[in-house]
Design a protein around this nucleic acid. Structure first.
Lengths: 356, 356
DNA sequence: CTGAAAGCGCTTACAG
DNA sequence: CTGAAAGCGCTTACAG
């Protein structure tokens, strides 16, 4: 040894002593931990954990005592830690194009209510109507390790579908229909909606139909059904105005002159939403066109106020509340271990408010 | 020693060997971890972490290599772990009474968009209109350790306000006004809305006003402003129908006869929402009452469709989008370290659609 | 620009 | 019914 002089260490230092571990403070106490509660209540941390997650397994008086300490201290468990440890985030992601002025908001409302009654919380992810950044959005969502996912519409890209399938958590697609769902599905066929509206128009003797719609996936499916059904009846010329979402009353207003320019004899318009329909209706009135005798107008969504203020409109009603509740139930069943796949067609109904 | 026969242990077992730690498997691999990426990329886990959280601090070619491995493997970081470790959940909670058929949905829409652009995600918590379980809801929210909270309305109970103040994260109250905000606030005075509507009515020469409203906090504030302003003008008798939320067109319809029963000379109605106003208007028409000449009706919310379909209605407009954006900005500034308090009165405007 | 060690606050899997 | 030890998958705080 090059240097065997006595060291400066205290007398009790031992030759074999491991290097003292560097104490790295991480910024001091951030708040109450489960150990704080345990110490005050005179139990182990595990018991405190059980009080929250499995109270039946704790003796009644222990339970009571711990609960009082929890309440007195104002302790709130850290679910980031709990989720990491248990692999149960108790989080469900809801991916929706938009919740503003939208049919989806009531679906999300009841979905969220149902989920929170079952002890889950909802992470809201707004996808917009473009799918440019959907991969990024999905990364953000999956990084929270949700235990289930509600999708609005059927996922478009194969890559997305593949990824969702592979995470191995229950997925429920809503508000649309497909033969190849990722997992579960609660929705209806927009294609058939289009067909059904076309049939109504045909039954009325419509010869020169038009359509106004935003260009989101489901609206396109409705348009396709509409067009194809009309084509089978020999009608191929359809006036068409396609706009970027979100649709609105004012877009409806401006679209009518465009449709009339394409088809001066226009006698029916299928609108992508009730808002568009209201706009078209208002503009028709302004031009002295009688609805529905000269121009039939069909909307989509069956908004309550529309039925009150615009009884001349026909529309397509969908039970958004039922979709939300069913979607929640599907996920919850799976989370309880039920394994069956599940596709529910909730259908739709055409609301003819005023006899033709 | 009672038993010093040779043991059955292998020859290399040592007397001093510490008790072999029990290996407790936790269920095997749940998915890719940061160490998997690190191993493939030939770097340490910390470097992979930096690629996600602080890419500027990583050499360009290391960055590129790690990113390729991440992409190839499909690795998604676990933010439960990340959040626990860093005390940064990147989560913002939005507590809203309801998002269905509601003015709040557009606030939440833009709030959520703004937040996600800044790298945060929104945890949606629906409080309903009762505050019975608000403590429970808050526990659920705080257990996720959000970095900020948006509240709709000003929190009611002292206990709630105290708890929110104590968590030490930025809080923004919205859609209401108070002299004693918990922290930041973006809203307007519902009391003043009520006063302003009363003044419009007085200016019209109204003598026998009534009101229909749901009984949520903000509606009550509007009613109070309305009543007190009228009282100052000597009007104390006000017909009144108070209903449980959510309000709707059909409730509006049924309320008019009730108001007329209380005050047969009824010449104005202040409604808690545009939906109620539309219902009242429809019922008035049905009874041959001209609006606004015989009966003035004022709603709340300025829904776009109402202006198109019911120009006879007056209403109160509020910029919900601005509230959402401002609330998001307030929170984001704080999260960046700016310390100033912030109270924004976004005001409101009365929309008189048809000249009296 | 990069890494080894320690720690975030819980829960699991045992054992008693 | 209760608890000591280990581990969940990251990031911090250093050190180089």
């Amino acid at each position: 040894m090059p240097n065997d002089k006595p060291t400066a260490y205290p007398a009790d230092s031992q030759d074999e002593a491991p290097p003292a571990p560097v104490k790295r403070s991480r910024g001091g106490p951030k708040g109450l931990r489960i150990t704080d509660v345990a110490a005050v209540a005179g139990v182990s941390p595990i018991t405190v954990s059980r009080v929250f997650n499995n109270p039946e397994s704790v003796a009644p008086e222990t339970l009571e005592r711990v609960r009082q300490v929890v309440h007195k201290l104002g302790y709130v468990p850290n679910r980031l830690a709990g989720g990491l440890s248990s692999s149960k985030s108790r989080l469900i992601a809801a991916i929706v194009p938009t919740i503003a002025h939208s049919l989806f908001s009531e679906t999300i409302q009841v979905f969220s209510e149902t989920m929170s009654k079952a002890g889950y919380q909802v992470l809201l992810a707004l996808s917009g109507y473009s799918d440019s950044s959907e991969e990024t959005l999905l990364d953000a969502v999956l990084s929270r390790r949700p235990e289930g996912v509600l999708l609005t519409g059927v996922a478009h890209t194969d890559s997305l579908r593949e990824r969702l399938r592979n995470v191995g958590i229950p997925i429920v697609e809503t508000w649309d229909m497909t033969d190849t769902p990722i997992d579960m599905l609660v929705g209806f066929s927009h294609y058939r909606v289009g067909e059904a509206v076309a049939e109504r128009f045909l039954a009325r003797g419509v010869l020169h139909p038009g359509l106004v719609s935003a260009n989101d996936d489901r609206a396109i499916a409705r348009i396709t059904g509409f067009r194809e059904r009309l084509a089978r009846a020999g009608i191929h010329d359809i006036a068409e105005v396609i706009v970027a979402p979100p649709s609105s009353v004012s877009i409806g207003k401006t679209s009518l002159p465009q449709l009339l320019e394409q088809t001066p004899q226009l006698d029916a318009v299928f609108c992508g939403s009730d808002l568009l329909a209201i706009g078209v209706l208002g503009e028709a009135k302004r031009r002295g066109i009688d609805v529905p005798s000269q121009l039939a107008i069909c909307g989509f969504g069956d908004l309550e106020f529309a039925s009150e203020t615009s009884p001349q409109l026909t529309t397509v009603g969908v039970d958004g509340t039922r979709i939300g509740v069913s979607a929640a139930r599907c996920l919850l069943e799976r989370l309880k271990g039920v394994k069956e796949a599940n596709v529910t067609d909730v259908g739709f109904h055409i609301v003819e408010r005023q006899t033709v």
